[in-house]
Design a protein around this nucleic acid. Structure first.
Lengths: 144, 144
DNA sequence: CCTCATTAAGTTGTGCACAACTTAATCGTG
DNA sequence: CACGATTAAGTTGTGCACAACTTAATGAGG
């Protein structure tokens, strides 16, 4: 019996499913805030440091402008951020939270805890999982 | 300092990034086989048991017909599978590997090992990671 | 200076994920 | 048998991911 190609043995499938399952738990919660999951990640990055350029956001989130540009446009239409052409270097666009975007931060504070509770994993397991995943990502990205 | 919302503390972000990073490592390898990553997952499921219905594939992969129908259509155009309306129950469609689809199995056998090597994790770490992720997915899906 | 390479952001096109819906076949109960 | 409910697959529309490309601004070497 060939175990190499069994679906349930694949780390890649486990990762892919888990990622979608987590997104699925976030979805109804973030719906309340009027956000999609990737938009929430962008706001996390901005709450941490506001006024970043598109490239800086891309570096933090590992996303390129092809993904971020339209996403930021939608966040702007939703009134969460605004985008300003940098006057010193007009190639760059800096992204700033609006008052609404900043205000959402308080409501978002409860979100990670809710999802952690639904995960059924202990705090320690979650921390270890996060660290293994971060190592994995760094190893794989370093390859290229 | 509020650590709750720090991007690098989020398990969800680590999961999301890792999943995309893994897919990124698979991409050039699967390109050689003429497959996308989700198409590869479908073939894994079919190599394991051929002739499944769309629903059965969906249950195995946790995907709905909205995702699978067009994906299977593309796999069919690529000559990897064919789809047959079940004669006993004409609501169902069974998906069968073609000779080409079956033949790809041998070439695919080397793929998981290549990615595992690039991961920089030990076999034990990968097994544990897979199991934690599977538990996590089951916990989250059980919620709904 | 001036041109050519580089860089930043955005655009286009493809495929996936998923919600909401449609269509068609089957089932179950009276 | 009839008919309403259920089920299976497919369709439509939105958003994300990413490759390949375009446009516009900056930078560096001659």
């Amino acid at each position: 019996m060939d175990e190499t190609l069994r679906l349930r043995n694949q780390v890649c499938f486990a990762l892919h499913s888990a990622s979608r399952a987590v997104t699925g738990v976030y979805r109804p919660i973030l719906d309340e805030l009027g956000l999609t999951y990737p938009q929430f990640l962008v706001l996390l990055a901005l709450w941490e440091r506001d006024g970043r350029t598109v490239s800086e956001l891309g570096a933090a989130l590992r996303l390129d402008s092809g993904t971020l540009s339209p996403l930021l446009k939608r966040l702007e239409s939703a009134g969460m951020v605004d985008r300003r052409r940098d006057t010193a270097d007009e190639r760059q666009v800096t992204v700033h939270l609006t008052d609404d975007g900043e205000a959402l931060r308080e409501r978002a504070r409860a979100v990670p805890g809710q999802v952690a509770a639904a995960s059924g994993l202990t705090r320690e397991e979650l921390v270890e999982l996060r660290d293994v995943l971060t190592t994995l990502t760094d190893n794989l990205k370093g390859e290229s």
